[in-house]
Amino acid sequence: MEDEAFEPDVEVVETMMEALFNINKYYEAMKVFQMMRVKRMHDFGLSSYRVVIKWMCNRGKIEQANGMFKEMCQKGIQADNLTLASIIYGLLARGRIREAYRIVEGIENPDISIYHGLIKGLLRFRKTGEATQVFREMIKRGCEPIMHTYIMLLQGHLGKKWRKRHDPLVNFDSIFVGGLIKAGKTVEATKYVERTMKRGMEVPRFDYNKFLHYHSNEEGVMMFEEVDKKLKEVGLFDLADILERYGQKMATRDRRRNRAVDP
């Protein structure tokens, strides 16, 4: 009874595990996990396994993650989509594409975490076309992309090499600087150009999150429509679809806002 009275809160212990994983203290984190197993803590279950499996999959330790997954299932703990998403990403990152898709096919109600696991894994394996197809499929099935979805896809499509292209139609740095100026962000545009000039051919770190936020307005909608046309002119249909969809999302959002202001 005394042991039960002083049993630590499982959420606190899981937070400790996550913190140790985040600073690459793998063995210390696993010691904590083992302690939870031995003590048979009251709430020890899915969330505890999820923390370990996610870290292992992110670090390419897919065999160890599969071992944890099997142990969890043997204990009668049913996996949720977040845990399955980690396994899917881990398999894709190791090039085990068929295994990953086999898991996806067995999921009755895939949610955004599953689609993100697929997109992230495919991008890690440099399959940008397939990742974009997953993006289209999730929309078709009624799963609305979020900001993180667009950021992942843009990062996957717009590498340093691609962004250095001199063709004005597809030079993303030019599009970005022009867009900043249109949005009234002249200071940010000047700083970006200065950083590019100082570093020569090296492309400075690009903040896609800020880029999308800057253009989440009516002017941004027009810019995305214009960029969509330019990209399609040079055959970059996947990237065009991503930016076009984001522009549509912003236009719809603005219309909803206007209806709320003027009922």
Rank of each mutant, 00 (worst) to 15 (best):
K31L: 04
Y49T: 07
M17N: 03
D43N: 11
T15M: 05
E18G: 04
N22R: 09
R37V: 15
E14C: 11
N24H: 10
S48D: 07
V38T: 12
M30Y: 05
M35K: 12
E11N: 07
R50T: 15
E18C: 01
E28S: 03
N24D: 14
R50N: 13
I23K: 07
R40G: 15
V10S: 08
V12W: 04
Y27I: 05
H42G: 02
S48Q: 06
K25Y: 02
K25S: 07
V32S: 00
E28F: 00
I23R: 06
K39V: 13
M16W: 10
L46A: 07
M36W: 05
E14P: 00
Q34D: 15
R40V: 12
K39M: 14
L20K: 10
F21Q: 02
G45I: 12
D43T: 12
T15P: 00
Q34N: 15
R50A: 12
A19D: 13
M30R: 03
M41V: 15
R40L: 08
V12S: 08
Y26E: 10
Q34T: 12
E11M: 05
M16Q: 13
A19V: 10
V13D: 04
M16T: 11
V32I: 14
V51R: 01
M36Q: 12
K39S: 15
F21M: 03
V51D: 03
M17I: 14
E14A: 02
V52W: 01
V12K: 03
H42D: 13
I23T: 09
Y27H: 05
K25W: 02
V38D: 14
R50W: 04
R50Y: 06
A19E: 14
K31V: 07
M16Y: 04
F44I: 10
E14K: 05
S47Y: 08
V10E: 10
D43Q: 11
M16N: 13
K39G: 15
M16I: 09
G45R: 06
M30C: 04
F33R: 04
